[in-house]
């Protein structure tokens, strides 16, 4: 199974989740603080990160992980206060869950983000070219002007989903279901935050996007270029 790094300051929650995830077959590393967690990133598949941490808070940890790589991050938040969720998503988290969380749900989310990172798209010999953007669906590499773009797994999955049918509008709910695998109506802010991050990486001018266009009242569309 997968290797999970759980960063959570509360001992009981940490031990409970560790127990549950371990029983489900994951290898679980735990850390009590953000600093500790950042030191254990090697050989980890996914990070489950509590937002409220002593010292360095979850948002900062999230930003640091994003600065160095594309490791999937699931936020654990004790408060679903809207501003916290938005701030976490802006810091680069791929998904979030609100405590108390049933291990089964957390497990499903972990699988979803890992699948995103692993098996997106169908085998294809050549990279698709969309303007300056080259998307290779088999190697999961995206290049802009020949230079590789480092995308978080959700961002990559979202780009692949949208670019699979250029010009077609996909609603936020459709995207939530296909990219985040949220079984029922989810939080559309996940999509919006992810689109923002993706635009920042692939668009020349994120304020006037060419690739990921907003269709007001409907959702998002790739192109037309």
């Amino acid at each position: 199974m997968s290797r999970v790094l759980l960063i959570e300051d509360d001992k009981a929650v940490r031990e409970g989740l560790e127990l549950a995830l371990t029983r489900q077959g994951h290898s679980v590393w735990t850390a009590e603080t953000g600093e500790q967690g950042l030191g254990r990133l090697a050989d980890v598949d996914v990070v489950v990160l509590d937002l409220m941490l002593p010292g360095m808070d979850g948002f900062e940890v999230c930003r640091r992980i994003r600065a160095t790589g594309t490791l999937p991050i699931i936020m654990l938040t004790a408060r679903s206060d809207d501003i916290d969720v938005v701030a976490g998503l802006e810091a680069g988290a791929d998904d979030y869950v609100v405590k108390p969380i049933r291990p089964r749900v957390l497990e499903a989310r972990i699988r979803a983000v890992l699948r995103r990172a692993g098996d997106a798209g169908s085998p294809q010999t050549e990279a698709e070219q969309h303007g300056d953007l080259a998307i290779d669906r088999s190697s999961l590499v995206v290049r802009r002007d020949g230079e590789q773009v480092s995308l978080a797994p959700t961002e990559l999955r979202l780009l692949l989903e949208l670019s699979a049918s250029p010009g077609r509008v996909l609603s936020r709910q459709q995207l939530l279901e296909s990219v985040w695998e949220h079984g029922y109506l989810g939080d559309s802010r996940l999509v919006d935050a992810c689109v923002q991050r993706l635009r920042a990486k692939i668009e020349t001018d994120p304020a006037a996007p060419r690739y990921i266009q907003t269709v007001r009242g409907f959702g998002y569309r790739f192109g037309p270029l």
Partner: peptide, 20 residues
């Protein structure tokens, strides 16, 4: 409610274990 959440989070984490 907020104070109850953290212990509940720990308890919820192991409910599946208890069920199994």
């Amino acid at each position: 409610s907020h104070e109850l959440r953290t212990p509940l989070a720990a308890m919820t984490a192991v409910t599946d274990v208890l069920d199994e």
